[in-house]
Amino acid sequence: MAAIIGVNGIGKSTLLRTLGKVQPKLYGKILLNKTPLEKLSHLKLATEISVVLTEPIASKNLTVWELVSLGRQPYTNWIGTLSEVDKEKVNAAIKMVDLTSLKLKKCYELSDGQLQKVMIARALAQDTSIILMDEPTSHLDLYHKVQILKLLQDIAHKTRKTILFTTHEIEIAIQLCDKMLILEKGKSAFGEPCELIENKNFDNLFPSDTITFDGNTGAFRVNR
């Protein structure tokens, strides 16, 4: 599990969305297993990378089960018939995010946290080796933020998937992530959270006259 952090406007979401081919790249090269991203068709890419975005879904009148089963689209036939294998994968994905009891509920009946889990389950059902998530914890309270990120950690470790997400929850990410990417103007740092702390990469993330980073506790402090 890897987090992308940085201040607002530095380009976290842009990077993530570009990696997922949600938006076209500005310049440079993106390789997926040595193949340039633009050479892959959308369908092929859909079996390699799934995404969870910040934008609200257009229709909330789908049931949890229906929404998650849309994740099987890259594998289903021309009209989207679900095979037994597809159904199993959908059920497994719903079980993984612990929403089995809600699977026949409509999405408009769910809380923000539950809806986020549904979107994660949809990405899981898509059965890709990489899941990209844009701010999966925004709009959630502290408990649910931790709950979602622990769930992601659990998924990443159990299924051996790569989960790359952007977040502003730096302190929680330090505790839970295997790797972190810090985006800063001019230079960026990538590594394990401990290494990054030792190298003082977090110290200059925010203007030091307002916020300082305490390497011992892994927490930010507001200067009075």
Binding site: H42, K44, L53, I79
Partner: peptide, 24 residues
Amino acid sequence: SILSIKPLNSLLLGENYARSMGVN
């Protein structure tokens, strides 16, 4: 229209999601 049923269903989540699920 019938041939577009699958993209139509994925469009329920929005264009970006539909694209990420392999829809042209």
